[in-house]
Write a protein that binds this DNA or RNA. Structure first.
Lengths: 342, 342
DNA sequence: GTTAGCACTCGGTGTAAGAGAGTGCTAACA
DNA sequence: TGTTAGCACTCTCTTACACCGAGTGCTAAC
């Protein structure tokens, strides 16, 4: 059977209608809604075909039809009309670059959640390929050293290193200079073991302790660390009855609290996304178990130079894809503009 | 009417039973449960009295009784038998002091949530009265300066200050020395305006920019900042049917996500707590609207020297008070021991 | 190919009946 | 006077059943 133009139109009408109402949609509704001027009987025939082809399903015998995952997929791939959305508040909020990455990210998810009414998440930009701006070692205690590492985009990371012996001020100062002269401007993947051992040698005399410190710092720079993720609007899932039942809600909320799975999801979507950096997972396509009744839309964003992170929006399968994709696109653009000036 | 010994025993039995089952408890159950050897009819009479006195209520005419807020209150105040609880995992986890406060706090709430099966929260220890260990200014950009402030207990705070003119390295170094010599070892409330302006004077020549920087640092030290709060186990609320309905769950989860109200709650409980630092809010007693069907138990903890924070546990009103209070007590003790060594 | 008509299916709602748990009250008992 | 047995009563919860409405699939006519 072929999916001709008329069938497409009907499918689109079914989906649009279902997105709005959340109720199974029947032939009569379509007959009145569209400009096809067909009777409900004709629509019924066509819908039977669409069902046979797997684009729509009947929850039970005498109900209307709802889109299947395959139907949504077709819609997202070929029928969606992205609405370039004005993101309320977004502009004012982002006009001024936040000093701290953390604040910026928290704001983004919050605003996004308010705008879309879905649950949102964002992963901090990965520092891989991200340049080191500053390393600062300071003594906080007899044998504890604070290492502050600042990378491009003012991502600040603090590490406390415990050393066996004390280090005197002078050594520490030398170390600071040494590390900064050699490492600043480099990105994490440019800092390899060879370079580290060269540094250790150069540190010379106190090589033991110094080596220890350098190791820790190196680890601090390289470490993916536990991939920071910020979320917002988790309780929006209660807006959608199909997600709000106890079991599903609990699982979802747990996923959002644990954050680990979210990390993997965002991570994966980044490598998979198409050239626009936007990726849509519908129902079972989602790699995260607890989201099998949801759809997830992710967007990769880029701040300046190679600093990439991912934004994710989680909602019911009948989410407003047009709006969500449009909104994400807007944010991508705004972030890009904001940070390109560098 | 007087609350004699027998009535107390019956009340206690009612509460104990209700805590376990979550079902209204009837006279027959009590008659069999207790060692009072009274018939159900007698119990019925007593229960009618208890209801009249307001300690128990009947959800509807032909149901058993459940404790009222007043009943719980009496129970908590006079009948509870704290169980000194071994906190599973706690010991291993805390044996080694965490380098970073953040990690420690996250671990505590997580372990606590797993142990109690309730929702948990913790506020970071307030730096008020908490001594400054280190201030470190570093330049990250032409006109951006990173101020790292470390206080007792290794609470690290990063601030990025934007200055109008650049500062040369030498000035920055001087500033570092100046700030550290004068401020280290002081607590936030010892650092007042007079001291700041004295410092500014001393900074002399570059007074404008330097003043600006000092101001920012001072603000950084003093600022309550947005009171950091960590939570865990929010989805535990789904374990308790009386909290799991859509509306309540949504509200609760929202409260836990927003965190602001939690902050106020923890803050308040700190000042109110009795001498043991443990405070129980039952139902309507809670200052947070969304928790009016919950009970909240808070405990103030102290790390070393004046660094106080608060732990909170949120569950249904029929929470296992004995266990929760016992657990919190244990944690108080352990944290105290751990940090007293200083 | 399209449409009108019709029998059929099935979920949702409303009502009624019955079971079960628990109470309050009365009267008898120690 | 306090305690207990007995009983009628109340109220929730479950089950069964009927009914309504929405929607379908099919057939026959256009």
């Amino acid at each position: 059977m072929e999916l001709d133009e008329r069938k497409k139109k009907i499918l689109q009408a079914v989906i649009r209608n279902y997105l709005e109402t959340g109720e199974p949609v029947g032939s009569r509704t379509i007959s009145k809604y569209t400009d096809l001027n067909l009777s409900s009987a004709t629509i019924r025939n066509e819908m039977a075909d669409l069902e046979e082809m797997g684009y729509i399903v009947q929850p039970h015998t005498s109900a209307g039809r709802i889109p299947s995952d395959k139907g949504y997929r077709l819609y997202v791939d070929t029928m969606m009309e992205e609405k370039e959305r004005e993101v309320v508040e977004m502009k004012e909020m982002l006009v001024e670059r936040q000093d701290k990455m953390e604040t910026l990210l928290k704001q983004i998810v919050k605003v996004l959640a308010r705008n879309t009414q879905y649950a949102t998440m964002i992963s901090a930009p990965q520092s891989k390929g991200n340049k080191l701006k500053l390393i600062q070692l300071s003594r906080v205690d007899e044998n504890q050293i604070l290492a502050v590492i600042v990378t491009e985009g003012n991502v600040i990371r603090n590490n406390i290193l415990t050393v066996n012996e004390g280090l005197d001020d002078e050594t520490l100062l030398k170390l600071n200079i040494l590390l900064n002269t050699h490492l600043n401007g480099l990105s994490a993947d440019e800092i390899n073991l060879g370079m580290i051992s060269a540094l250790k040698q150069q540190a010379g005399i106190h090589s033991d302790i110094v080596g220890e410190v350098i190791d820790s710092v190196a680890k601090g720079i390289t470490a993916q660390e536990d991939l920071e993720i910020y979320t917002s609007g988790t309780n929006n899932i209660f807006r959608y009855p199909e997600l709000a039942d106890q079991h599903k809600a609990s699982e979802l909320i747990n996923t959002f609290e644990e954050k680990q799975l979210l990390g993997e999801l965002l991570q994966e979507s980044r490598s998979e996304g198409d050239n626009t950096g936007i990726q849509v997972y519908i129902g079972e396509e989602t790699p995260v178990q607890s989201m099998r009744d949801c759809s997830v839309v992710t967007a990769t964003y880029e701040l300046g130079d190679g600093m990439k992170g991912t934004i994710g929006i989680v909602g019911p399968k009948r989410m407003d894809y047009d709006k969500v994709v449009g909104t994400l696109r807007t944010i991508q653009t705004q972030l890009d503009e904001l940070y390109r000036k560098d």
